[in-house]
Write a protein that binds this DNA or RNA. Structure first.
Lengths: 130, 130
DNA sequence: CTGAATCCGTAATGATACTG
DNA sequence: CAGTATCATTACGGATTCAG
């Protein structure tokens, strides 16, 4: 029953927290998902990940590269061509994400309904009634 | 190979994104982990989740309650006593989190080393060198 | 094309003081 | 005890501009 010990300690810098800090942001998961099918160029990723700005895409890609989850290959051409590809480790991240995805899809309905009924009877979560 | 289709579309409000928005914040996972062993009072959670402020703890618990992942039981006493407990659905969240935790613990070393070597040869990710 | 650098508004978070 | 209210600070994200 003591399942807490599994994903454990309530410290800020435990592995799980660090990983969540990486994938918890708005773009990382989408970028990793886009790259799941194979290497892509910067502009190709940009057009597939709807709504991402250059800044955030570059930032996300850099962070993934830094963590060894994505490789960046530059082709010295004019115009320049840069390809990004998931590393073996990056691909392995697909498994936990798939599990999470499965949980999400099977529970989102219930969650949404819970929210509705909660909002119908209680106050908003983060605001005052003013 | 087309694993991307599993956790799928690059839209902002897909189930996975919504769930990540919930568990991606700094405290939710810690609170859920704390409650995994059984119901706790507000103050008991507060002292176990190191560093959480009253504001964030309340906010996190409200959000979890709103989503039907946690129940809030108030005992009309002086002084007041409030207990929080994971719902069945809340407990089921433990599985995907455990998978994520497993991935995190088995890869964090590699990631950390990748970061070191990256930082040693490249520029910082989010800053300028100035 | 692939970024880097900068500015700026908003949202998230934390510290603190106060209340039923 | 279990919150709420308020304020200060910071982090995040987007738009824009410039460059190799």
């Amino acid at each position: 029953m003591s399942q807490a010990a599994v994903w454990n300690p309530y410290v800020r810098d435990c592995p799980t927290r660090q990983v969540l800090d990486r994938i918890g942001d708005r773009w990382t998961v989408l970028v990793v998902g886009t790259l799941a099918d194979g290497p892509l160029r910067y502009s190709e990723i940009a057009e597939r990940v709807d709504g991402v700005s250059q800044k955030m895409l570059t930032q996300t890609l850099r962070a993934l590269e830094r963590d060894g989850l994505v490789t960046r290959t530059m082709f010295p051409q004019i115009p320049p061509r840069v390809e990004y590809e998931l590393t073996e480790e990056g691909r392995s991240l697909g498994e936990p994400l798939a599990v999470l995805e499965h949980w999400a899809t099977t529970h989102i309905e219930t969650i949404l309904r819970a929210r509705e009924s909660y909002d119908a009877t209680s106050r908003p979560v983060g605001q005052s009634t003013s």
